[in-house]
């Protein structure tokens, strides 16, 4: 089971732009590599990443085989209200990994 790690600031002033950093352990097997017998290793990557803030989808990404193993991402949101921030990673095999936190906006 891949382990996500997420860095979300606990507090922010209303209107402030804040950064979220996230990584998850994953091989991101691209489908381009071959094993020792010369057979292609099947693709298995996280193909989608979705972020919700206080229940609304605010950012998402489609990832392809060119994304490095253990994908790291940094992106920015504006602090509008206190609430939960949830990050979701969707795997080729149908698994969904989630992590998150909450921000208090004053």
């Amino acid at each position: 089971m891949p382990t996500p790690r997420v860095k979300i600031p606990g507090t922010a002033a209303k209107g402030e732009v804040f950064e979220i950093k996230a990584t998850i352990d994953h091989d991101m097997e691209s489908g381009q590599r071959k094993n020792k017998e010369g057979k292609p290793i099947p693709r298995k990557i996280i193909n989608k990443f979705v972020v919700t803030y206080a229940g609304n989808e605010v950012f998402s990404a489609d990832w392809h085989g060119a994304i490095s193993a253990n994908p790291y991402i940094s992106f920015f949101l504006t602090a509008t209200e206190s609430g939960p921030i949830e990050l979701k990673w969707m795997d080729d095999d149908g698994s969904v990994y989630t992590a998150g936190g909450a921000i208090t906006v004053s």
Partner: peptide, 10 residues
């Protein structure tokens, strides 16, 4: 929201 800036590794 935020700003249009993303960092990743490829």
């Amino acid at each position: 929201t935020g700003k249009p800036e993303v960092t990743m590794r490829m």
